[in-house]
């Protein structure tokens, strides 16, 4: 009796979640698909985004996310390795670093935006630029990436590390050839979550990467992110709603494509399911 209720509740909950997702994507597609065209993807925006395309905005978005991930991934990897591999359990240093990461995760994105604006744009003189926006986003995704990497490293059994040590492998070799490949699924999950967060961020970017919808010539130029463009079309441009839907469809597509690429690359690079001796170069 009790079990039947549990099954019923779980099924209804799952159905509602699926319905919400389908509804959301469905609405986007119904409003956005008719506007979608090759011109939209390549041309520059005209008339405040109500005509023309979103080519420069897609390029700027990819650059911002690229800068963010390129600077956040090594830092997150290093931090997680320090906490998990290089410090003994219960270490004060590891604890302090972990607390800092948690504090970073709790900061609202608008605060990151104002911080990026004050430090990167003004104090460091980067101005409104893709670099400022990307670095601000890097601070934001750092806790997500660090957390995911840490979980992944922790999930690798101690026996693997002991076995590697017994074979006389150095810490570096153990990390590169045993621990990281074994933790790759968690790393990919972290990467995908981080990219998702970076792609969807709006508040932090308005104050850092800016609003200019011209094709960026370098990362020192300002560039408008897709999420900022969608916000602007739906709030500030009369008659911009349909174009906002179209841009949302593109953002969704971009997210799926980048995630697919990220997991493909990560599996290819770290894709050894069994660690053989042939993989180990002393």
């Amino acid at each position: 009796m009790g079990e039947r209720w549990l099954v019923a509740f779980a099924s209804v909950a799952a159905a509602l979640v699926a319905l919400a997702a389908l509804w959301l994507v469905g609405t986007l597609l119904v409003h956005g698909l008719p506007e979608l065209s090759w011109t939209l993807l390549t041309a520059a925006p005209l008339d405040a985004g109500r005509a023309g395309g979103i080519g420069p905005i897609i390029v700027a978005t990819l650059l911002i996310v690229g800068v963010a991930m390129a600077s956040a991934v090594p830092l997150a990897l290093g931090t997680a390795v320090l906490i998990s591999e290089l410090t003994p359990p219960g270490s004060r240093l590891a604890d302090a670093v972990r607390r800092c990461v948690d504090a970073l995760a709790a900061v609202p994105s608008i605060v990151f935006g104002l911080f990026g604006n004050a430090l990167l744009c003004k104090a460091l003189g980067l101005g409104f630029s893709i670099l400022s926006g990307g670095l601000t986003l890097a601070c934001m995704v750092l806790p997500i990436l660090t957390r995911a990497t840490l979980l992944g490293l922790r999930s690798v059994p101690l026996a693997d590390r002991l076995g590697a040590a017994a074979l006389g492998l150095s810490r570096t070799s153990t990390l590169l050839h045993v621990v990281l490949p074994a933790a790759r699924r968690a790393l990919v999950v972290g990467l995908v979550l981080g990219i998702g967060r970076a792609l969807s961020e709006t508040a932090a970017l308005i104050f850092t990467s800016g609003y200019v919808d011209r094709m960026p010539r370098s990362v020192f130029d300002s560039g408008r992110a897709l999420s900022v463009h969608i916000l602007d079309l739906s709030l500030n441009v009369p008659g911009g709603t349909e174009r906002a839907y179209a841009a949302s469809v593109v953002l969704l597509g971009l997210l799926l494509a980048i995630n697919a690429c990220a997991s493909l690359l990560a599996h290819r690079w770290l894709g050894r399911d069994t660690v053989g001796l042939g993989a180990i170069r002393p």
Partner: peptide, 23 residues
Amino acid sequence: PLMAAIGKRFEESHPGVRVDVHT
């Protein structure tokens, strides 16, 4: 959005000047 549109019109008649609009 209005000033961005005006900025584009300005850039057409003033080569060498860029108008960057932020919110």
